[in-house]
Structures are given as C-alpha cells and as structure tokens.
Amino acid sequence: MPSEFELIRRHFTRPTPQALLGPGDDCALLVPSEGMLLAVTTDMLVEGTHFLPDTDPGALGWKTLAVSLSDLAAMGARPRWALLAGSLPTDDESWVARFAAGLFACAGRHAVDVVGGDTTRGPRNLCLTAIGELPPTKALRRDRALPGDDLWLSGQTGLAALGLAHLQGRAHLGEALRETCVTALQQPLPRVELGIRLRDLAHAAIDVSDGLLADLCHVVKQSQVGAEISLARLPPLPRGIEPLLARHCQLAGGDDYEILFTAAVDRRDELAALAGELELPLWRCGSILAAPVGEVRVVDAGGQPVDFAARGFDHFA
C-alpha cells in the first residue's frame, strides 16, 4: 500500500494558481488581493456524528469543503484557499481517491486552491479550514440586525434532516423526494454567490447549520434584538411526509447550509430581483423586533404564537 506521503502526492497535490506556494513545504504562502480582509473558518466532520459510516466518499469529499464555504458565504467572503487535516482508520486508496475527487469537484466549482493539510491514522475525522477575502467594510456579521428589518431565508431548510431521517429509518420518503433530500444532506450547495451579492443589501447574516431557529437565536442574541418568524411565509412543506416531522426538520433539523439574513424593508424589490437572477428562492419569512431581546417567536398565518420547543442541534446537549 502507498505511504502517507504517496497518498497525499497522488490525490491531494494539485496546481494552486492562487497561492505563491502550495502543498509540499512546511507552510503555504498566500497573498490576499490588495485592500482585502481575510475571512477564516474551520469545520470538523466526525464519522458517526456528522456523517454515517457508509456515506459515499465522493459526496463526503464535497461536503467537507462545502460546509466551510457556507461559512464564508454567510460573511460575504469570496473563497480562495483551503487546508485539510484528517485521520483515517486505514490506508484504503480507493476510498481516498473517491473522497479527493469529490473535494476537488467542489473546489473547482468555487475556484478554491487546496494548499496544504495533514493526515494521520485514527477514527475517521475530517477538519477543513477555508480562507476567503472581502472588502474591509462589507463583512456580513451576526451582530448587525436592526429592529424593523425583514428576515429572509434562501432555498429550503429541512430537506437534509429529512434525508437523514430516511437513512436512519425514522421516515420513509418516496423515490423523488428521497433523492432530493439525501443529496441535500450529503452534497449541500454553499450559497457563495448569494453571500457576495448580499454585501450591499443585507445587515446581518448566518448560515443555517444547526437549525433555523437555533441559528436565528445566535443572530438576535448578538444583535441584542428579538425576532418573529411566520410559518406561513416559510417554504411549503414537502408533500407525503408526516407534517409534524416535516415542520421539525424545517425549523430545527440543521445541515441545510442556506443563508438566513436581515435587510431593510426598502430592499425588498432588489432582493426579489436578485432571487430571479440567481434562480434561487428567497423567502421573506419574518421580521426583527426591538424586544424581547434574544428571543425568537414563531407565529401562524393569523399571527398567533405557536409553541415550538425544539431549536436545533447541540453537540453537548
């Protein structure tokens, strides 16, 4: 079997045109564009916690990068570079080759150079650091939501959680919906272009990774505001699924990697036009309130409060 360094050379050493120096030395050498800030994020994917043991390696390679690109997107940053560290239980070259193909497919789609990393033997655990850049005054932060802002959501939350429920035998999905939901779980699409276009339109933003309500709570707490989210303004629930399960997945399922953001009321027409241009639904699903600070209220079509205790995923809950 190939050595550690041979595996890296064969499958992870690719041209890095955006780096002064890529893999093969003690460090990569990177030069940000003039006048730009760097945005840096790290995500860890652990077998049994973030993905099932029999997950397709190519899909896992894609997702390992995609989840970190989603963080960059939520800040309005353009992705540039990535570093990958991981532990693997065996030196299965077929698995590594398929994983690398998925990783570099995602990297190629978003013009990301993989410039280094590390590997060791151990339980399957993948840790990726992504680096992007953006103008100094354009970062989309969690602490910038303002009372009176509209609350917007891209795409459709809940599909990934339904896909996981199907794979775990907690739900049975029809063939078409099953394919959609499992793909959403295993090969999410980071909203990179949306994040960049929101730099001049949104006030605050976050990517939905732990659950819609959980991540909205991060925004309202850091912005010192409250929020109301309307069930009637969210994407329609998938048909053929028990409604309570579908609603739970939509509000608290997580693993969606959509962007939740706030914007002034007078931006509605521009955001509607952007949705059409990107061919990506943007749902005006609620509003930011002055009070109660740090709280999120869920209401029905008539504006009446709905009791929904579940919020989202917590590794230590």
Rank of each mutant, 00 (worst) to 15 (best):
W81E: 02
M75N: 14
W62P: 00
R109D: 04
T64K: 00
R78G: 04
V115G: 03
A97N: 14
A111Y: 07
T129L: 15
G76M: 15
P147E: 09
A101R: 15
A111E: 15
R141P: 05
M44K: 07
V115P: 03
V115S: 04
G117T: 06
L134D: 07
R124I: 12
A111I: 10
L88P: 02
A59F: 09
A107H: 02
A82D: 02
D149K: 10
D54A: 14
D92S: 09
A101Q: 12
L83P: 03
A74S: 14
G61E: 13
T90N: 12
G122Q: 08
R144S: 08
H110D: 13
A73N: 04
A77M: 04
G58V: 08
P147Q: 12
G102P: 06
R80D: 11
P53R: 10
R80L: 12
T42Q: 07
P79I: 04
L60W: 10
T42I: 09
D43Q: 05
L103A: 04
E133I: 05
A74D: 04
A100H: 12
G86L: 07
R109M: 07
L146P: 02
G102M: 08
D92H: 10
A82W: 02
E47R: 05
L153I: 12
D118W: 04
C127I: 11
H50N: 13
L65W: 08
L69H: 01
D71G: 01
A130W: 00
R80A: 10
A107W: 03
T137Q: 13
T129V: 15
P136S: 11
A139L: 13
E47I: 06
T137K: 14
F99T: 03
W152I: 14
R142H: 07
D71C: 03
R142Q: 12
A66S: 14
R98Q: 11
R144Q: 09
V114C: 08
P53L: 07
W81S: 01
V112Q: 01
V46L: 14
A73P: 02
A139I: 15
F51N: 05
L45E: 00
G116A: 07
L134F: 15
A130D: 00
A107T: 01
P89V: 09
L88E: 12
W81P: 02
R124Y: 05
V46F: 11
G117F: 10
W62H: 15
V67Q: 00
P89C: 06
M75G: 14
W62V: 03
L65H: 03
S70L: 01
L134N: 06
R78E: 08
V96P: 02
S70Q: 02
D43L: 00
L84V: 09
D71I: 00
R78D: 05
D150R: 15
G108W: 03
A59G: 03
P57L: 05
D150N: 13
P147T: 13
L140M: 06
